[in-house]
Design a protein around this nucleic acid. Sequence first.
DNA 1: GCGACAG
DNA 2: ATCTTGTCGC
Length: 241
Amino acid sequence: MESKPYVLEHGTEFDKETLIQEFSNIQSELLPKVKLENHFQKDELQLIAGVDLAYWDVNDTMYGTCCIVVIDYHTKEVVEKVYSYGVITIPYIPGFLAFRELPLILEAVEKLTKLPDLYMFDGNGYLHYRHMGIATHASFFLNKPTIGVAKSYLKIQGIDFIMPENRMGAYTDIVINNEVYGRTLRTTKNVKPIFVSCGNWIDLDTSTEIVMNCINKESRLPIPVRLADLETHKMRKQLSR
DNA sequence: GCGACAG
DNA sequence: ATCTTGTCGC
């Protein structure tokens, strides 16, 4: 049976296997440019952005909206909110989320009046089959440090995560082939953990520290990602009617 | 063929 | 991601 073709833009069609082949090549070319070291001064962190998308469909056409919420790292006040929306042309394929979501993300970023110092994503970064989750991939277009924050676990090479202790701030590292891919982090007691990984230009300890500093009692997710999530749902309500 | 599978 | 109400518990 043949793979179903996918329409990308203006009548261009690709079959799934071709997409995966080309996408894998792109990810492999980016990998050598990843640096898991802080390319910034911690005490200069001011604006942190959370990025998320929501989807809906109309007559078999998939639409999406991307919302970016920027907060002041110290006061936790919302500084700016921007969004974009449009037709989604790339299918969701595990391991290739960035190719589906980046177009709308970059469109929304264009609308920001102040550039954030760091971006947090709803999804993985270095914790990925080829270390190229959306947080890492996106960093090359944003030119800023990024962090990946996933709500569920992406199992790699059959390796399960180790459940951290049930106390706020407890974590266990996700190690595969002697390499640390990411971290299972309990941001809130009595609530299931999240999965934090470096995006780019930041180390895992600092990523963990920043995520924990963005936790309040409202959610297990860091504030920027949580607010972006809520915002995309609001936008979908408006846009889908 | 079957199961796995960030969002 | 999305489809969906009430409900148990802190």
